[in-house]
Design a binder for these strands. Structure first.
Lengths: 144, 144
DNA sequence: GATAATATATGCAAATAACATCTACATAGT
DNA sequence: ACTATGTAGATGTTATTTGCATATATTATC
């Protein structure tokens, strides 16, 4: 999906097959930020990325630049050089309609993943908590 | 963390740094299943893994076996050969206390990730929905 | 005795990630 | 003028991870 295609589910539906790892969720956050800001260049996005990241991990600028080029190759964003305003030339990116659609697909997947994670955590928590209770009971018994 | 250590946050706290990709969440689900079932062998776990998976992706048995050996190396599980009951020998795994603690750390991280995902999806949804509204408004105007 | 199912494990190519490095321009300080 | 610093984009290298194929061994079934 990160490359526009999952070879297991094809295009039948958005899936999280190759989404667990590809660029550590840089892609959806980048799409989101572009949607939010209208247009932006990579270096700038790199600064906002951190606060919207889905994990604790630092986002490698190299990964961001590569993701942007990849997104462009796939037709999800367009770019043009911006020479003007002082400093080195910057590449201005903007979302395409396909990009918006792709973001929407990511949202389906991420919502589903978040749901699965929450259910998992709840289930696992119960298991562990019941354990703690046992220990407390044991301790109480021991103290009598 | 999957290997028991994150070289960015060290051991100060559970983090999701290397959790976006390592074995596609096979590790926490494996720990959970072992906690749930008391003891189990790899092939068996492979069958339950699917229904508790956090993503759509099929879990490769090779990855599961490798994860189990890794967990053992890190002291999170122990194993012993089970010759008895018909068929090829199976390796019976069980959680250690360190394994339970490790699962608890995963829960912290996964809860946090799920939260981040939900917030992200909500934010992004608003953006896209407001877009749709604009389109609807435009369409309405157009139809007048 | 051939075949299938169970069970664990390894080998290898390809995909990904982490980290370092490179180019280039501009500005500020000395 | 020279140097350092910050901005901006991009590539190269190496290590890790993944996906898929394959190997090995035991039992059950035909």
């Amino acid at each position: 999906m990160a490359r526009g295609f999952c070879h297991r589910h094809g295009n039948e539906r958005p899936c999280s097959c190759s989404m667990g790892n590809i660029y550590r969720y840089v892609e959806p956050v980048t799409l989101y930020l572009l949607k939010l800001k209208g247009r932006a260049y990579g270096y700038e996005l790199g600064n906002y990325l951190r606060e919207h990241a889905l994990t604790d991990s630092e986002v490698d600028r190299a990964a961001l630049y590569r993701t942007l080029r990849q997104l462009e190759t796939n037709g999800f964003v367009t770019s043009e050089w911006d020479i003007g305003g002082g400093g080195p030339a910057r590449r201005l990116y903007a979302l395409t309609q396909a990009g918006v659609d792709h973001l929407a697909e990511w949202l389906v997947v991420l919502r589903q993943m978040a749901g699965a994670m929450n259910r998992f955590v709840d289930d696992a928590d119960k298991l562990i908590v019941s354990d703690t209770k046992d220990l407390q009971t044991a301790a109480t018994v021991e103290n009598e």
